[in-house]
């Protein structure tokens, strides 16, 4: 039996055929669609490296069956830069040295984008730390991550004011 589903990933629609329903969204992105920017750190929802946006919300793609998000809009790290320009969160991660080895970084950035969209942390570092605590960084670049998210939140609100 072959199952099929369709996913819109970073604006591109993909028809995916699976031998059975086991593959997770993470494994479909990485092994079948070749979108390897999303990382597998624990495969059990305990590290956040696999964070992507599903219909605009940050989730762990390792605990999501691909079949159950059939038809959804997925955003991965490959899809956040626009027209060659980095997303403000990406730029803030570089400027604030918010990573070392880089392995957790795609998940951190997707989580930060989700956090900022949720709108509850604002510029409060303690709320940012709590809101980013679902993303482990074994290099422990946490001070930079917190500062980058605060910085990006400010940049995005300035952008909004400008465009308003």
């Amino acid at each position: 039996m072959t199952l099929s589903l369709s996913l819109t990933v970073n604006g591109d629609r993909h028809e995916v055929h699976l031998e059975d329903a086991r593959p997770t969204l993470l494994d479909v992105l990485r092994e079948r669609l070749g979108l390897v920017g999303t990382k597998k750190g624990c495969d059990r929802g305990q590290c956040g490296a696999c964070t992507v946006l599903v219909d605009g919300r940050r989730i762990n793609s390792c605990l999501t069956l691909a079949m159950s998000v059939d038809g959804a809009e997925i955003t991965t790290i490959e899809g956040v830069a626009r027209n060659g320009a980095m997303h403000p969160v990406q730029a803030a991660f570089i400027d604030n040295d918010a990573f070392q080895c880089g392995y957790c970084t795609p998940g951190q950035i997707m989580s930060a984008i989700g956090l900022i969209a949720e709108g509850e942390a604002g510029g409060d570092p303690e709320r940012i730390r709590e809101g980013m605590s679902g993303n482990l960084c074994r290099c422990a670049a946490y001070p930079g991550i917190t500062e980058a998210v605060r910085d990006a939140t400010e940049r995005l609100s300035q952008n909004q004011r400008k465009s308003a």
């Binding site: 929802g45 956040g48 989700g114 809101g131 679902g134 993303n135």
Partner: peptide, 9 residues
């Protein structure tokens, strides 16, 4: 409980 990502799912 859990993490923001898990709470979203």
């Amino acid at each position: 409980g859990a993490s923001p990502q898990l709470r979203n799912a």
